[in-house]
Amino acid sequence: MSTLIDQAVQARLIVSAPPARAVPARLRYERSDPFAVHIAFPPAASLDGAEVEWTFARELLATGLNTSTGCGDVQVWPCGADRTVLEFHAREGVAMVQLDTAELRRFLGRSYELVPAGTEAGHLDVDSDLAALLREA
């Protein structure tokens, strides 16, 4: 069984002056980082021309499909029946994207097949992670 889920999605970048524009994005989930999901945007979607990746709690994404959640750098909420908004806060500003809720549900479903909810801690390799930290110190 694979230890990685990598799924292409189409995001709509919400901008202050219409129209919103479509940008490709990639959702990633790894068994070795069981509490987190990652979303990456290509260089063309950023102000400085560099790829942008955000990492946040899988639970935040799952909750945000049904109700507004998040109080930090990442906030998620449903936008009608078919779309979900992800809002990212950084020093440079705020970015908002809309994603297809059905695609997010499929991605989360695959992640729960890989690591069921409530079993995340059992997939952490604390000894190896600690050893790596000590080697770097």
Results as ranks from 00 to 15, higher is better:
Ser2Ile: 06
Leu134Trp: 11
Ala90Tyr: 04
Leu124Phe: 05
Arg135Ser: 13
Leu104Pro: 07
Ser2Gly: 10
Gly122Lys: 08
Gly109Met: 05
Leu99Asp: 10
Ala57Arg: 03
Pro78Val: 03
Arg58Cys: 06
Val74Leu: 03
Gly70His: 05
Leu47Gln: 13
Pro24Lys: 06
Ala121Cys: 07
Ala40Cys: 02
Leu130Ile: 14
Ala117Phe: 04
Ser46Gln: 09
Ala25Val: 01
His123Cys: 15
Glu120His: 04
Leu4His: 07
Ala45Arg: 00
Gly80Val: 03
Ala102Ser: 12
Asp100Trp: 00
Leu130Glu: 15
Ala40Arg: 03
Thr69Asp: 12
Arg26Ser: 02
Ala57Ile: 00
Ala62Ile: 02
Ala44Val: 10
His123Gln: 14
Ala121Thr: 06
Glu30Phe: 00
His38Pro: 09
Gly64Phe: 01
Val126Ser: 14
Glu53Gln: 02
Gln10Phe: 05
Val37Gly: 06
Pro116Asp: 04
Leu99Ser: 07
Phe35Cys: 04
Asp100Ser: 10
Arg105Glu: 13
Ser32Asp: 11
Val52Leu: 12
Leu99Phe: 04
Gly80Pro: 10
Arg26Asn: 03
Pro18Gln: 00
Arg12Leu: 12
Asp127Arg: 08
His38Ser: 12
Glu59Gln: 06
Leu114Trp: 01
Leu104Arg: 02
Leu86Gln: 06
Ala117Trp: 04
Arg12Glu: 15
Glu59Ala: 08
Arg21Pro: 07
Thr69Trp: 01
Glu136Cys: 07
Val85Met: 15
Asp127His: 07
Leu61Phe: 00
Arg31His: 05
Thr67Tyr: 05
Leu47Pro: 12
Ile39Ala: 03
Gly93Ala: 07
Met1Arg: 07
Thr63Ile: 08
Thr63Glu: 15
Gly49Asn: 07
Leu60Val: 03
Leu65Phe: 05
Ser68Ala: 14
Ser46Thr: 12
Asp127Asn: 13
Thr55Trp: 01
Leu86Glu: 07
Val76His: 00
Ile39Ser: 03
Arg106Asp: 14
Arg91Tyr: 09
Leu108Gln: 08
Arg91Gln: 14
Phe41Lys: 01
Leu104Asp: 08
Ser2Gln: 12
Ala102Thr: 12
Ser2Lys: 09
Gln98Asp: 14
Val97Ile: 07
Gly109Trp: 01
Thr119Glu: 14
Leu61Trp: 00
Trp54Gln: 06
Val85Pro: 14
Arg91Asn: 12
Val52Lys: 06
